[in-house]
């Protein structure tokens, strides 16, 4: 069953058409990769899905609900979490604290109880334990107490994934998670994303240029160019699609 369904979505900025009648669906429990040249509109779509941008036309349905009617601060409540292409972490906080900022949004203690410090201790212990577990899954636990500032780019990307996971999402959107990683690190990350998907019964939407990872972990690939979909299908079909090779993959595919 489709968890996310994007129908005929268009976005315009002034005279620029960033997305042009884009349609695709993501089935529950699958990993869907979104690929395409720089400027094709992949991140724009992410921003539509997380309600940072307004779609000019079209409809988006998430779990049967009209997503375009949900305000951006309620996206996390629906179970959607994302990472950003240009990292959005707090450099002065430690790795663990950064991950816990994610957990806070899903905390069960309301404002009043938090203000009165009722049940905060156990809640915080729970979040701390959960955050540690997530860090372990992404092989980041040895860095838990280091401040984020000054850590290498590829590590920061993984910390962002950890923070998104701390929201306990059903639907995870990853924007170029493999950027800045070596091949073996990419393999590890790919394996981690797959196992996290299985263990947390997640659905994943992924924007990525690292083809080895896309081909290895995704069930379904959507290819975009100039704001439109140019191909859609399983990875082995996409890799041999002449239109995709011409617009995106080039000789090395």
């Amino acid at each position: 069953m489709a968890l996310l369904s994007v129908e005929d979505v268009g976005v315009r900025f002034g005279g620029v058409v960033a997305l042009d009648g884009l349609s695709f669906t993501v089935d529950e429990g699958t990993i869907c990769a979104l690929i395409g040249p720089n400027g094709a509109g992949k991140t724009t779509l992410f921003n539509v899905l997380s309600r940072l941008y307004q779609a000019t036309t079209g409809a988006v349905t998430f779990d049967g609900q009209n997503l375009l009617a949900v305000p951006s601060h309620r996206i996390a409540e629906l179970g959607m979490a994302r990472t950003f292409q240009n990292l959005a972490l707090f450099p002065a906080l430690t790795v663990l604290e950064n991950v816990m900022t994610g957990a806070h949004s899903s905390g069960k203690v309301g404002f009043t109880r938090a203000a009165l410090r009722i049940g905060v201790g156990s809640e915080e212990r729970r979040m701390r334990a959960q955050s540690h577990e997530i860090l372990q899954r992404l092989s980041l636990d040895h860095l838990a107490d280091r401040p984020c500032g000054g850590l290498p780019y590829g590590t920061l990307k993984r910390i962002e994934i950890a923070r998104a996971l701390a929201l306990s999402p059903r639907f995870l959107m990853l924007d170029e998670p493999a950027a800045g990683l070596t091949h073996s690190e990419v393999d590890e990350l790919g394996a981690a994303i797959k196992s996290i998907r299985d263990d947390f019964s997640l659905t994943v939407l992924l924007v990525e240029h690292h083809m080895a990872m896309v081909m290895q972990i995704s069930d379904h690939v959507v290819v975009m160019d100039f704001g439109r979909k140019i191909a859609d299908g399983p990875p082995e079909v996409i890799r041999n699609d002449p239109a995709v090779i011409k617009a995106y993959l080039g000789a090395s595919a």
Partner: peptide, 14 residues
């Protein structure tokens, strides 16, 4: 420093 970071495969080859 990582000139291909965030670039699509075709653009990286170019």
């Amino acid at each position: 420093d990582e000139p291909s970071l965030g670039l699509a495969p075709l653009i990286t080859q170019d």
